[in-house]
Design a protein around this nucleic acid. Structure first.
Length: 596
RNA sequence: GGCGCGGUAGCUCAAUUGGUUAGAGCCCCGGACUGUCGAUCCGGAGGUUGCGGGUUCGAUUCCCGUCCGCGUCGCCA
């Protein structure tokens, strides 16, 4: 037997018991006459004392060979520590093990990543990824992995309580050209043909609804061959949900319950439900983004009409060109942003398509002042100040451009300024829904017969329009809103879903708008269209990004830290060195010849 | 693909305008010490400054290229 207890469980109640512990040497303190070891496992740290009279001289001598990350087994008596020597930083800090036996189970090289929390500087991320086994040994990472485990368990419990069944769907599927780039898997049996790894189990779960499994859930691995971000991995995990005989409210309500339970069980915070909902149009108008961070205010204010009355050429030209002039008020921003600071913001917004950054500061008398103030009459300035609720010390930042650019710029500014000015508690959690997304967006790069871009599905081609918008499919697709909803946590898209089209006429109309002719549709999703013809129930669902949910619940800003073995920005695994090259023999069997 | 930041000892970082033998803390090695808990004290070892080229009497430093890591824009139904 390697151990009778873990390194996290012994207390003064155990005093006098002989115990055996196994674990890693977290730290050692050599006093010549005696030596202390902090022994670590997943459960905590326990101090081992190699000192007389309990430990023999030979044992003490032996203990002097111990080094960091050596794996040892120790037997001894649990003892309350001498008065005044307890360590309140440790859960086991009131006791120690007076060692009588020591067995070295394994040695360790000097670790490039120290798993010990006593080392405050964590190694660089590339080193951590290369030696992931050491990084994952760090208590911080272990806590995150355990948090992830707890979240998925609670989710599974919740869905089970609500009579969902977990059904696995294939990893080897077929490629569909919509959406992200596919990861392809060549077929040996059918040379020249390829499977695709799923971007999500979307089509399968709809098929399951048609098959009568009215509440489906799966924790599903998904793959998208697109460039990475801090919150995006090529391989990620979705909590995939689909329900029959439901409308948007039913799905949203079901997930409200899940969020409420998770927040309570995992973070011990009470989240009032139903969660607040915002339409997409409102979110764009007030916050410039479809996943706004609602932990703070700083709403966008439209000033287009007032800007038109000024003599400021930049504003006038934009307004005359059909653009918009919108602004945010960074309350008390002048103390944070000097002229140089504003120059920094100006550079920043240029990265989002802004040509420059117009601004005003609000002086002590409540008047707007700026290098461009001279282009505005006093009345106009007062009107602006009133609309923007400007008070002394406030900093007003403008974006003048087309609608989409003002959204992008002001969203970027809003997020950056709020973070830099610490306008919210970094521990705060804000959950909300964005609903009624547009059905379509214009792909301006794609060529269409009409020559002005083509419609693409904002979510996917099976998304149902709002019932009252069905006729807009014929008259004004741009205005057509979908039965779609995104779960937003702290300005991060944590999940999204839709009610699906379950009738053939609507489906063909949408395909038509998307430029998918009957033949193409049949070729790509024939099986789904076939299935829809055999009594498809009204259905819809959602997929939550599990990695992101864990990241947000762990208050981390990086998805790699919640994935045991993540990929780098170039989609490689620094530990296994995947992807790697393969034998010519393997390629030959697959009928593949490489160019280079 | 674009833009930005970074790469110096096993780890975290420093190095003046381009100038002596590239330093410090941790780790590691040796020694001292009967109670520490980031132990302490003394001594020591440890470097292809990512890689390749260029400028220069002289390059960690300047220039070009390249590789890698991170952030971001494009991209992500």
């Amino acid at each position: 037997m390697y151990r009778t207890h873990t390194c996290g469980e012994l207390r003064t109640d155990h005093s006098g018991e002989e115990v055996t512990l196994s674990g890693w040497v977290d730290n050692y303190r050599d006093h010549g006459g005696g030596l202390f070891v902090d022994l670590r496992d997943r459960y905590g740290l326990t101090q081992i004392a190699f000192s007389p009279p309990d430990s023999s001289a030979e044992l003490i001598e032996e203990s002097k060979n111990l080094r960091g990350e050596y794996v040892i087994q120790v037997t001894g008596k649990v003892a309350k520590r001498p008065a005044g020597q307890d360590n309140p930083k440790l859960a086991t800090g009131d006791i120690e093990i007076r060692a009588t036996e020591l067995k070295l189970l394994n040695k360790s090289e000097t670790p490039p990543v120290s798993p010990s929390e006593k080392v405050s500087e964590v190694a660089g991320e590339d080193t951590r990824l290369k030696h992931r086994y050491l990084d994952l040994r760090r208590p911080e990472m272990q806590r995150t992995m355990m948090l992830r485990d707890r979240i998925t368990k609670r989710m599974r419990d919740y869905f089970e309580e609500h009579h969902f069944i977990d059904i696995e769907t294939p990893i080897l599927g077929r490629s569909t050209p919509e959406g992200a780039r596919d990861y392809l898997v060549p077929s040996r049996v059918h040379n020249g043909k390829f499977y695709a790894l799923p971007q999500s189990p979307q089509l399968y779960k709809q098929i399951l609804m048609i098959a009568g499994y009215d509440r489906y859930v799966q924790i599903a691995r998904c793959f998208r061959d697109e460039d990475l971000r801090a919150d995006r991995q090529p391989e990620f995990t979705q909590v995939d949900v689909e329900m029959s005989f439901v409308d948007s409210d039913d799905i949203i309500g079901m997930i409200d319950g899940l969020v409420e339970k998770l927040a309570k069980d995992v973070l011990d915070i009470d989240v009032p439900t139903p969660l607040p909902r915002l339409t997409y149009d409102e979110a764009m108008r007030r916050f410039g983004h479809d996943a706004p961070d609602l932990r703070f205010e700083m709403e966008i204010v439209d000033c287009t009409d007032l800007a038109a009355k000024s003599d400021f050429g930049v504003f006038k030209n934009v307004v005359e060109g059909g653009g918009h002039v919108r602004a945010i008020n960074a309350k008390k921003g002048t103390s944070k942003y000097s002229r140089r600071g504003i120059d920094g913001l100006t550079e920043y917004v240029k990265g989002f398509g802004a040509k420059g950054l117009a601004w005003f500061r609000c002086d002590d008398e409540g008047k707007l002042a700026s290098t461009i103030a001279k282009f505005f009459g006093d009345d106009l300035l007062a009107e602006l100040a009133k609309r923007l609720n400007a008070e002394p010390g406030d900093l007003i930042l403008f974006s003048a451009a087309d609608w989409a650019t003002t959204c992008k710029v002001l969203h970027a500014l809003r997020t950056k300024v709020a973070k830099e000015m610490e306008l919210y508690d970094p521990k705060a959690m804000h959950f909300s829904w964005i609903v009624e997304f547009p059905m379509f967006e214009l792909d301006e790069e794609a060529d269409s017969p009409e020559g002005k871009g083509t419609w693409t599905a904002m979510h996917h081609p099976f998304t149902a329009p709002l019932e009252e918008h069905v006729e807009l499919l014929d008259t004004d697709p741009a205005k057509c809103r979908a039965q779609a909803y995104d779960l937003v946590i702290n300005g991060c898209e944590a999940g999204g879903g839709t009610i699906r089209i379950h009738d053939a006429p609507t489906q063909s109309k949408v395909f038509e708008l998307l430029g998918i002719d009957a033949e193409t549709a049949k070729d790509r999703f024939g099986f789904l269209l076939d299935a829809l013809a055999y009594g498809a129930p009204p259905h819809g669902g959602i997929a939550l990004g599990l990695d992101r949910v864990v990241m947000l619940f762990a208050r981390l800003d990086n998805i790699r830290d919640v994935i045991a073995f993540p990929k780098t920005q170039k989609a490689t695994d620094l530990m296994t060195e995947a992807p790697g090259s393969v034998d010519g023999k393997q390629l030959k069997e697959l009928g593949i010849k490489l160019d280079s």
